[in-house]
Design a protein around this nucleic acid. Structure first.
Lengths: 334, 334
DNA sequence: GATATTTTTGCAACCGGTTGCATAAACTAA
DNA sequence: TTAGTTTATGCAACCGGTTGCAAAAATATC
């Protein structure tokens, strides 16, 4: 069906190597030769088979993009940035949707079968062991939105979730709340654990302020809403740090459905600053996670590691900032 | 680095063909042989190179998943369903993010270089010519969310946008509005054009009801909001059919920012029924597009076409239904 | 103009698999 | 047991490219 190198060679009356060389840059070809070949190629509509060449070069330019976050709107932006960024560098994202049941091994095997040059794991809920499995298979890995560590086993790019938890706590304290709550995502996810730790660490410096906590089942609207409904039944805190934006919006929904007002009755601060947070029917005060930088940096790190596979694992941590909107009472005048 | 078939053959003390055969089902291998080979393969941690085999079999199991809708939250669900569905059938999605600048040719060439078995174009805004380019290149194509046609040139799966426009118009008429508006998406997109046609066709049966129209710049929150702000400055309609949900939410935002109430001052009906539409801080009345069926059906059609490339182009059209929520006044009692 | 040097080109082997064909091994039937 | 079938295996060519090496052609040097 498709035109092959051999046909081009015949048409141009040259060797197959010559054709191959005109299409690999850095190879030595005379101008005359190049013109001849390009002409024949054009006439035949030839374009080289990337997979065949990968056999000898050992590079497919395929990058596995693995995630299990196909329900959090923030990840649409993440996928957008990743696919664009990879494409711009001539890399092709092979998307893997990791449903919760899927065992890591299967994905690792599959991605190896397709000889991906590298793997980007984009998830804040997958355990670190998952990314490690790729490294053990000899595939360069970058874990975006992964857990921060001072001696990372694989490249990690993201935020310091403990720091984010602290920032949330500090913000609530500044607003003068005397009973605050940590309304976390799923307890099993590392991001939740770290945010919890940071939040509580900061609160322990304020023993006069009551701090309670609980966990929702998932980073989702419904889970946030359900958990908040439960909390509202019995002496709720004055303000909560929601697991992420989408959970916080669920919590907001619970608050207004319970006939309460946010922020005057219960305040909320989210995390992510996803697109919808600024929609004025939502208008969520939140902690901004610098998605764009995280993605860009992940790609850079991947490219660098492809060039030098021995590169030592590195953690790149970005800082977060509060985005003031309407779901937290303003700080009292000093 | 990776273990090859040859090494397994040597270890098992058999020919390379024997190893190949144990890993291709339908091939003739004795039980004894199979056991020997599997043992060796296990010990070596061998898994066959899918790309190398594609060279002779002509199948990569790679499916190009092409879209330019990386900003509409509904597409996260679409990607989720597509990736899951493809994976379940042993196919691998190679994601292509078509920024508006990208010319189709480049994508076609790239996907051919990677010898994709087929291409799924998932977009309501790409022109039909785009999908056609793949067909012309001899690659099976399914255009999901594409334009309906009674004699399609490529497989199309989606809704009848004219019918959806009619349904919207009929719904607004039933609610007793006497001045209705079509607040469309970008005028250049076929889905907008078709919804417009349907809407106006239906309205022409009600000459006593005033029907006006305008178009937003994109299927986005900001575009919907901007256009609605403009409309509100000068004798707006009583209710609008928004281009899609995300635009409608933007319009909602404009309405409340202008000190008006929805639905009592201005009503809105959207299209898609995306996740956020049911969030109670939004609570958008909308027309449900059966995403799940469209995706499932697209995949089925792709699989069928892979099995029989000569299969005649087919259009699969699903119907829509109104989902009643809070942004339209109720129908008057009969 | 002859020789030394550099650049271009083709040959042939290889990347990691698959597969048609011929032969060997294992059954069946008589 | 023997001939006739069927099934299993290996050989070798092939898929569509790349690349080390040596020969050929083009350039540079004297």
């Amino acid at each position: 069906m498709a035109v092959t190198l051999k046909e081009v060679a015949e048409r141009a009356g040259v060797s197959r190597s010559a054709v191959s060389r005109t299409f690999t840059d850095g190879a030595s070809v005379s101008d005359a030769m190049r013109r001849k070949v390009e002409k024949a190629a054009r006439e035949l509509g030839y374009s080289p088979n990337a997979l065949a060449s990968s056999l000898t070069t050992g590079r497919t330019k395929l990058i596995g993009l693995v995630s299990n976050n196909f329900h959090n709107p923030i990840f649409l932006e993440v996928f957008d940035l990743f696919t664009r960024g990879l494409q711009d560098r001539g890399l092709r994202p092979l998307l893997v949707n990791l449903s919760d049941e899927t065992e890591p091994d299967a994905s690792v095997r599959m991605l190896r079968q397709y000889s991906v040059d590298g793997v980007i794991v984009a998830s804040s809920t997958l355990p670190p062991g998952f990314a490690r499995a790729f490294r053990d298979a000899g595939v360069p890995v970058v874990h975006a939105f992964g857990r921060y560590s001072s001696s990372p086993e694989v490249h990690v790019v993201g935020i310091d979730n403990r720091e984010a938890g602290r920032l949330a706590a500090r913000t609530l304290v500044e607003r003068g709340y005397t009973h605050v709550g940590f309304l976390g995502g799923p307890e099993s996810s590392t991001s939740t654990q770290d945010r919890y730790t940071g939040f509580m660490t900061e609160m322990s410096a304020h023993p006069n302020i009551k701090a309670t906590y609980s966990f929702a089942k998932a980073y989702s609207f419904d889970a946030g809403r359900d958990e908040m409904l439960r909390l509202l039944q019995d002496a709720p805190a004055q303000a909560y740090f929601g697991g992420d934006d989408v959970m916080s919006i669920g919590a907001l929904s619970a608050i207004s459905d319970s006939g309460l007002n946010c922020p005057s009755d219960v305040g909320i601060i989210g995390l992510n600053d996803m697109e919808m947070a600024r929609w004025n029917n939502i208008n969520l005060t939140t902690i901004r996670q610098p998605i764009r930088q995280i993605v860009t940096s992940s790609i850079e790190l991947m490219v660098a590691t492809l060039a030098d596979p021995e590169r030592f694992p590195e953690a790149r941590i970005f800082s977060c900032a509060v985005v003031e909107r309407g779901t937290l009472r303003p700080a009292p005048k000093a």
